[in-house]
Amino acid sequence: MLALNVQNLSCQRGYNRLFEELSFTANSGDLLRITGINGSGKTSLLKILAGLSDSQKGQIMLGENLVKSPKYQQEVFYLGHLSALSGQLNCLENLEFLTGLNSATASPLLLEALDKIGLKGYQNEYCSKLSAGQKRRVILAGLFASKAKIWLLDEPFTALDRDGISLVEACIKTHCQQGGICIFTTHQASNLPNQKTLAL
C-alpha cells in the first residue's frame, strides 16, 4: 500500500508565486490529473515531486521516505518534456540505460514493451532516425517496463497519434489497477475513468 503525502507545498519561480500551501494525498490506485492554465506550475509541481527541484516550503513523503531519499527516488519514474534519449544509441541501448538508472530491467522485458507500444523491430534503430512520436513511444516503453510505482507524466500524450494515446491510457489504467499511482498533466481531453483532478 503506497501513500504519497504532500503537505503545505509552496513554489515560486522568479517573481511569480505559482502555488501556495498545496496539500494532497495520493494512495495506491489513484489517478491524479493536474490541471491549470499555461504557467500555472504544473511542470514545476511534477519536478518537485520527482525530486528534481526544491520547493520553497512543504514536505513530500512516500510512506516514511522523504523526497530525494534513495528509497523514494527508486519508486518514481518521471517523464518530462525532453526525450531522455541519445541519438547515437539505438532504442534498446537507450532503454537499457534509462531503466538501469531506475531499476534494472531485463532486455526481453524491454523488447516486449517496445512491441506493446508499437515499435516492434525498431530495437536496433538509432534514436536520431526516429520521429517525435516514435521517440515518445520509446520512452513510454521504458516507463511501462520499469518497476517504479509512482508515475509522474508531464504531457505524456504529446506527439502521439490516436492509437498511441489510447495505448498509453490503457497502460495507465492497468498501472493504477495494479496498485500504482499516476500523476499526470495534459491539455488534451482524456477518457481515463476514476481520475481525480487537482487544479492549480
Binding site: L52, V76, G80, S83, A84, S86, G87, L101, N102
Partner: peptide, 10 residues
C-alpha cells in the same frame, strides 16, 4: 536530451 535529469533523480 534530458538524460542528465534522469541521472539526477535516479
Amino acid at each position: 536530451n534530458g538524460v542528465l535529469e534522469q541521472m539526477v533523480i535516479s
